[in-house]
């Protein structure tokens, strides 16, 4: 039952989009409002936005999760405050993040419509999921491991680097995959932050259209844009697929290395 929607969606995308898909479609610039040409600049913008998002969210997320699980007691007021606000943030609709990002990054901080604004807005959106996932995986590590490390006289930093981080890595990867999935599929938060410009980005301060915004525009705003909307959707699904497969490959590779060295 669960696979029916998946097969249906993939079948629909392949049926309508496969003919349009070609090497030149993926790498050339869009023409005539996206009805002709390709999605090259849009693909690059998307990768840059997601890169900025993850480059910001992963270090911050990891740090916050460490702070919550290792440096505060579980019932501490500050910890509870942070957890509570994260849970609320995780449920906020993405358009709200879009308006927030537009106000804070584009206007108050003066970044304008740019890939940087878009990536940072997405980072705010992805952080709650990331932090909670990583924190859970830190909690899953048994207390004995921490105590053994302390008994061996390891410093807190060494314990975190050598014992806790490796053990929590699968959780971190799951968090990254979930966050990436949410980031790469985002439309509402990006249309008001990274914007609508389909030109090849020349810097992070340029406005850049993401794949999801392009699909939305082609399907809902451009007459005759449907074929290319399907093809773009196919590329987006392919991208998510590649990200997922490579993450799990890294995870399995990493776990096997772990076993060898242990």
């Amino acid at each position: 039952m669960v696979t029916i929607p998946f097969i249906w969606i993939m079948g629909d995308l392949l049926w309508n989009g496969w003919d349009q898909l070609s090497f030149s479609f993926v790498f050339s610039a869009p023409q005539n409002a996206g009805r002709e040409g390709g999605i090259g600049p849009i693909l690059i913008s998307t990768l840059l936005i997601v890169g900025v998002c993850m480059g910001t969210a992963v270090p911050m997320g990891l740090g916050t999760a460490l702070f919550l699980s290792e440096y505060t007691r579980h019932d501490h007021v500050l910890g509870r405050l942070i957890r509570g606000s994260l849970d609320v943030l995780a449920g906020v609709p993405s358009i709200v993040f879009g308006l927030f990002g537009n106000a804070l990054f584009c206007q108050i901080l003066g970044l304008g419509f740019s890939i940087l604004s878009g990536g940072l807005t997405l980072a705010c959106m992805v952080l709650p999921i990331l932090i909670r996932t990583v924190e859970e995986s830190f909690h899953a590590i048994s207390q004995e491991q921490r105590l053994s490390a302390a008994a061996l006289g390891l410093s807190k930093t060494t314990t975190i680097r050598r014992i806790l981080l490796p053990a929590a890595l699968p959780g971190l990867l799951v968090g990254i995959i979930l966050g990436l999935g949410r980031a790469v599929a985002e439309t509402a938060a990006l249309i008001f932050t990274s914007g609508y410009v389909a030109r090849m980005p020349e810097s992070l301060m340029d406005s850049g259209r993401s794949l999801a915004v392009h699909i939305y525009d082609l399907a809902m705003n451009v007459a005759g844009g449907n074929p290319h909307a399907y093809a773009t959707a196919l590329v987006l699904v392919g991208l998510v697929f590649i990200i997922n497969v490579s993450s799990s490959w890294i995870a399995s590779r990493w776990t096997s290395c772990n076993r060898l060295s242990a």
């Binding site: 890169g51 993850m54 980005p201 020349e202 810097s203």
Partner: peptide, 13 residues
């Protein structure tokens, strides 16, 4: 995966 694209973008700029 994460820092590469950023550096690349700055180099590009």
């Amino acid at each position: 995966f994460l820092v590469g694209p950023l550096l690349w973008a700055w180099a590009w700029e």
